[in-house]
Design a protein around this nucleic acid. Structure first.
Lengths: 230, 230
DNA sequence: CTTATAAGCGTATCTTTTACGCAAAGCTAA
DNA sequence: TTAGCTTTGCGTAAAAGATACGCTTATAAG
């Protein structure tokens, strides 16, 4: 079969990180090529014989040297034929989260500069990357309410106030501290440890951890994680 | 920039229809080519300069001659390099619904045979199409509970019992008739008409219709459609 | 006129959500 | 040492929503 098709396929990753009440995205600035001196999402072309997953993971490793704690396909962007000025490129975007402890990226891996930007202070982005980023932000906001992905943004052990602030920050909403705690604890998938976290003032707080195994077990039994607040 | 990439990009559409307590999928059987005599999803390769949306709509028109009432991107399948035995093909799958009145497709549009199959009696499918179909079924089940897409499967005017049976059938779950009705009506997005539907026996039932405008308006104001039942 | 069948309305009970009050445990500074 | 500030952690009353049904109404068939 002969098939002349000159469409190229790329993958892009939107990597979110959370630290000190701020949601951040990982962006890279290439020193050469068309993207020279422009901030862009981590990504690149898929190689022949490579799967989509392999491609994103490779780009994440090559361009940012980062290990993500959560990764899922977001959306495939191909309704703007001129999204790349060079030629027609379809981009399969992936949504990724990293543990806040890994938020300091070793920059300049190869020929790139990787840097975290707070969501409320973004630079100009290349191509249609701001559109893709907006879609990712929406996905994050939605998923936070019906899947326990917030834990992928926090360290293994965290304070309840950190979890609560994460929800408030990302959902851009006020949540009653006491009801939030009650709801989360009622699920039985977050357990308290013996350790205490350090804070400047106030009563010392216990560290908690997410029991993923228990979550998976409960999910199989029909449990449904859900956090909605007025 | 030189870029040798021999990956081809295709679109596939999973078209669902509902009629007489049965969820159906539209499949086509090509009379020529590699797919000769095999049932497959509607789909084909994207043409140069064509957007993804344009491609699906074109395939839907060409291969099935059908107008869908709902269309959204489902997922991009590209993690199995050999999903197509000829060469590496990445498929962007779309999820579509059609109004039950259009469920009789004018077959043999060109060189194909389009036919509706009930979900519980499917033929062998080409490629990885059964995997794609399974993903679509899951999407349908999920979305039904938090978006009013059920109406896209029914005629403009429908009986409450039809809507209820649609939910029971697709969710494969028993739902209390009276509570279901109460819940749906409480949203204020389904209105009763003056007309009555025809049924063999029992008390005659009013026809209802979905007020999409009102739904959109309410959604902007923060309304959230949600139907979960134990 | 009786029976069968599905539509349509109402209500009591149980569960969940929401809105707060308040005590406990540490830090800081007078 | 103690008063004042801050954050954690627990509890509870009231409001809202979900669930489980009972019962009437309207038609067709026999």
């Amino acid at each position: 079969m002969e098939l002349r098709q000159n469409i190229k396929i790329a993958v892009d990753a939107i990597v979110f990180g959370y630290k000190e009440n701020s949601l951040n995205v990982l962006l890279i600035k290439q020193k050469f090529g068309v993207l020279k001196d422009q901030w862009a999402l981590v990504g690149g072309f898929v190689k022949d014989g490579e799967t989509l997953s392999t491609a994103v993971n490779r780009e994440l490793a090559e361009e940012a040297g980062i290990k993500v704690s959560y990764l899922e396909q977001l959306y495939t962007f191909g309704d703007d034929v001129n999204r790349d000025p060079r030629f027609q490129v379809i981009s399969v975007a992936y949504f990724a989260l990293v543990n806040s402890t890994k938020l300091v990226v070793k920059a300049d891996t190869d020929a790139e500069d990787a840097q975290w930007f707070p969501m409320h202070n973004l630079p100009q982005l290349a191509f249609d990357h701001s559109v893709i980023l907006e879609a990712a932000k929406q996905r994050l906001k939605n998923k936070l309410s019906y899947q326990p992905i917030g834990f992928d943004l926090l360290p293994k052990e965290f304070l309840f106030s950190e979890l609560e602030n994460l929800y408030c920050t990302i959902l851009e909403k006020e949540i009653d501290r006491r009801n939030f705690r009650k709801k989360i604890l009622s699920f039985g998938i977050v357990e308290e440890t013996e350790k205490f976290g350090s804070k400047k003032n106030g009563r010392p707080a216990k560290l908690f951890k997410f029991n993923k195994l228990k979550y998976n077990k409960l999910t199989k039994e029909g449990f449904f994680f859900e956090i909605y607040f007025a």
